[in-house]
Simulated scan of single mutants.
Amino acid sequence: MPTLAALITYYRGTDADDMAAALESLAAQTRPAESIVIVRDGPVEAATRDVVKRFLDAHPEADHVKLTQNRGAGPALVEGMRHVDAEWVARLDSDDVATPGRFERQLAYLEEHPGVDVLGTALREFDDEVFRETGSLERAARGVRTLPENHPQIVRYARLNSPVNHPSVMMRTAAARRAGGYRDVHLMEDYDLWARMLATGARFHNLPEPLTWFRTSPAQTGRRTGWDMFAAERTMQRNLVSYGLVSKPRAILNCLVRSAYRLLPTALLERAYALLFHRRGTTDAASGAGEAAD
């Protein structure tokens, strides 16, 4: 049987209730991970510390890695990966929720398709404000964020955009390390890793089922339009050229297109985001999404 580690990071901005929901969803997996690596990225609020302490007390399989200073998502993930000792590693963000059958479903697919190194899934988006008012993920559900499924489609898509939903991913630890693992690429640490893994021959696939609940909020939209994001775009395009995924002219075009859509008014930005990420409606009850407890 393959071994699995789950990797989650948190920092000062992490809400205690969000962290509790994320950790509980990892503990509730029908096929639990053998280990859970939790990385604290610098000092955090007391309420969030208490949530993590209670979880650690109840789950001896969890490993708590503490960084004394806030270093950002990339360095926190680098440190977390140093503590992963499993064939596969699954990611979850501290404000998202994994459905109970997520790990079981992904591992089953990977056993049936041994050539795959990176397996993502669709995400079921939910409205943060509605969820806080109702306490129900189902009532807060919005669209389903999907990405291309098979490897050739993923390779083409990666030339323009990140081809895997990061909070949904399960990846072969050795393949990630062979590509150099996570790096400190501000706001783009996941895209940068996928690009390097593609360049080093890793095989990708995305499942169409939404196996992770993905939190959405106005603050999230704001993060896509900050000046830091424009600088990150330039860095990422330079990286894509150096990895051999795109030409310099294509990188310039990508940077112009991706930066231009971030300058749109909020309503148009949301529409562009929906088109870019192939988000569809919620009228169909996608497999796996309904498993999460309210």
Rank of each mutant, 00 (worst) to 15 (best):
residue 163 P to Y: 12
residue 165 N to P: 01
residue 130 V to K: 02
residue 156 R to T: 13
residue 247 S to E: 03
residue 33 A to V: 08
residue 17 D to Q: 10
residue 51 V to G: 00
residue 53 K to W: 08
residue 66 K to D: 08
residue 15 D to G: 11
residue 119 L to D: 05
residue 243 Y to G: 14
residue 22 A to N: 08
residue 235 T to R: 14
residue 144 V to G: 00
residue 14 T to F: 07
residue 207 L to W: 11
residue 21 A to V: 10
residue 37 V to L: 04
residue 125 E to L: 01
residue 69 Q to I: 04
residue 176 A to Y: 05
residue 286 A to H: 10
residue 8 I to R: 02
residue 242 S to H: 10
residue 173 T to A: 11
residue 146 T to D: 14
residue 211 L to P: 02
residue 74 G to H: 02
residue 21 A to C: 14
residue 90 A to K: 07
residue 188 M to I: 08
residue 138 E to M: 09
residue 14 T to G: 10
residue 68 T to W: 12
residue 205 H to P: 07
residue 194 W to K: 09
residue 187 L to E: 00
residue 226 G to H: 12
residue 81 M to F: 07
residue 122 A to H: 03
residue 215 R to F: 02
residue 240 L to N: 07
residue 204 F to A: 12
residue 220 Q to N: 10
residue 159 R to D: 02
residue 235 T to E: 14
residue 238 R to G: 14
residue 195 A to R: 00
residue 129 E to V: 07
residue 232 A to S: 07
residue 184 D to K: 11
residue 102 R to M: 11
residue 215 R to Q: 02
residue 131 F to K: 01
residue 225 T to R: 15
residue 6 A to L: 06
residue 222 G to C: 07
residue 44 V to M: 12
residue 104 E to R: 15
residue 89 V to D: 12
residue 215 R to V: 01
residue 203 R to Q: 11
residue 101 G to A: 04
residue 181 G to I: 10
residue 205 H to T: 05
residue 15 D to R: 00
residue 210 P to R: 04
residue 78 V to D: 08
residue 258 R to T: 12
residue 32 P to S: 09
residue 256 L to P: 08
residue 247 S to V: 02
residue 253 L to S: 06
residue 70 N to C: 04
residue 36 I to N: 02
residue 179 A to I: 06
residue 43 P to E: 02
residue 99 T to A: 03
residue 39 V to T: 03
residue 28 A to I: 01
residue 7 L to V: 04
residue 26 L to G: 10
residue 39 V to Y: 06
residue 16 A to F: 10
residue 146 T to I: 15
residue 78 V to F: 01
residue 143 G to S: 10
residue 5 A to G: 13
residue 39 V to I: 09
residue 49 R to H: 12
residue 11 Y to A: 13
residue 240 L to T: 00
residue 31 R to W: 12
residue 290 G to I: 14
residue 162 S to A: 05
residue 67 L to G: 07
residue 3 T to C: 07
residue 207 L to G: 02
residue 272 A to P: 05
residue 209 E to T: 15
residue 140 A to R: 01
residue 125 E to T: 00
residue 148 P to V: 03
residue 224 R to L: 12
residue 25 S to P: 02
residue 271 R to Q: 09
residue 261 Y to G: 00
residue 100 P to H: 11
residue 154 I to F: 12
residue 34 E to Q: 11
residue 61 E to R: 15
residue 13 G to H: 10
residue 78 V to K: 09
residue 164 V to Q: 14
residue 123 L to I: 01
residue 188 M to H: 08
residue 184 D to H: 04
residue 245 L to Q: 09
residue 243 Y to K: 08
residue 54 R to Q: 13
residue 128 D to I: 00
residue 51 V to T: 04
residue 116 V to S: 03
residue 119 L to R: 11
residue 101 G to F: 05
residue 276 L to K: 15
residue 208 P to T: 11
residue 282 T to A: 15
residue 96 D to E: 07
residue 289 A to N: 04
residue 263 L to W: 04
residue 114 P to L: 14
residue 89 V to F: 13
residue 287 S to G: 10
residue 161 N to I: 11
residue 83 H to L: 11
residue 40 R to N: 01
residue 77 L to P: 06
residue 172 R to H: 00
residue 154 I to A: 09
residue 151 H to L: 05
residue 15 D to P: 11
residue 281 G to R: 07
residue 263 L to N: 06
residue 184 D to I: 10
residue 232 A to K: 01
residue 108 A to F: 13
residue 91 R to D: 06
residue 111 E to K: 14
residue 197 M to G: 08
residue 162 S to E: 09
residue 10 Y to D: 08
residue 55 F to K: 08
residue 216 T to H: 03
